[in-house]
């Protein structure tokens, strides 16, 4: 009996906290459907007069090319993920299972760089891209993320525990290393690859300072940097429009997040094992 009471109390507490966590986002959603007059008043939570005007005017406003930003973010995110998955899986498999020369040096070398603070490479990377004339292109928004050793570390642990018998069987059938990797090893690594994919995508999509300094024109901004620049402009005067814009910018990543939540959580857990 006492336990039941305690349970109810905990559920109530958890619910109050859940409301507190979700209110800013729900408030954003509800305000995006309010007229300017109602948005500033902020008297009621739900819009009394439901309007789509904020969305239609935002979508056709050339000074805030939100679809271009969304495209940029998705494009660099997907490109970055593709590169990271490919090169990290190959490297991790090579180091974990193949006769790579110096692998006893290479793997610890890669992993030790996980402890290097990001800020140490920030300015020289900027200077490198500047020297190559690649600022304000997609290159700096995609390439630097591929040097991160996290994926190699994560996949290495998985490949280490991969059953040898499967590889042996494929070798008996005359498959070479590459064929074994692509046909036997990779398919079995799908869950862990999904984890790495969502981890990488989230970190690229949400990165702020790096894309802020390496892009300079509105058409090259990502969602995160575009919203930040816009927030400092005149657009802020209309809360309804502002919230329509932030809602549009949040939805895609929220969908990715909710779909990939399980993989993401698994990745966090594994990164914590270190």
């Amino acid at each position: 009996m006492r336990n039941k009471k305690k349970n109810i109390l905990l559920i109530v507490l958890a619910s109050i906290l859940a409301v507190a966590f979700l209110i800013p986002l729900l408030w954003m959603l509800s305000t995006s459907f309010k007229s300017d007059f109602e948005a500033i008043g902020g008297s009621t939570f739900l819009p009394q007069e439901f309007t789509l005007a904020n969305y239609t005017s935002t979508l056709f406003n050339d000074s805030v090319p939100v679809f271009r930003w969304l495209f940029n973010s998705l494009f660099v995110g997907i490109a970055g993920v593709s590169i990271v998955l490919t090169i990290d899986a190959m490297a991790a498999y090579g180091l974990a299972r193949l006769d790579v020369p110096f692998k006893k040096v290479l793997f610890p070398l890669f992993v030790s760089t996980l402890m290097i603070p990001w800020v140490i490479t920030f300015l020289p990377l900027y200077q490198q891209f500047s020297n190559l004339g690649l600022l304000n292109t997609y290159a700096p928004l995609i390439l630097p993320y591929s040097a991160n050793a996290f994926g190699v570390f994560l996949l290495y642990q998985f490949f280490r525990s991969f059953p040898k018998e499967l590889e042996e069987a494929a070798r008996m059938d005359g498959a070479n290393k590459w064929q074994i990797f692509v046909r036997v090893v990779l398919p079995s690594a799908r869950p862990i690859l999904a984890t790495l994919a969502i981890f990488t995508f989230m970190s690229i999509y949400n990165d702020f300072l790096w894309p802020l300094v390496t892009t300079s024109t509105p058409d090259m901004r990502t969602v995160t940097t575009g919203i930040a620049i816009m927030q400092q402009g005149s657009f802020v005067s209309s809360y309804g429009k502002l919230m329509a814009l932030t809602t549009l910018a949040t939805l895609p990543i929220l969908v990715v997040f909710l779909i990939g939540q399980k993989s993401f959580i698994k990745g966090i857990t594994q990164s914590g094992i270190k």
Partner: peptide, 25 residues
């Protein structure tokens, strides 16, 4: 050599975007 090719692409990125900027910095 063929095994090393597996590590090579990452090693290139690692060098270009981590080792070089470290020294350059």
């Amino acid at each position: 050599f063929t095994s090393f090719l597996f590590v090579l692409p990452y090693l290139i990125m690692f060098t270009l975007f981590l080792v070089v900027p470290l020294i350059y910095g």
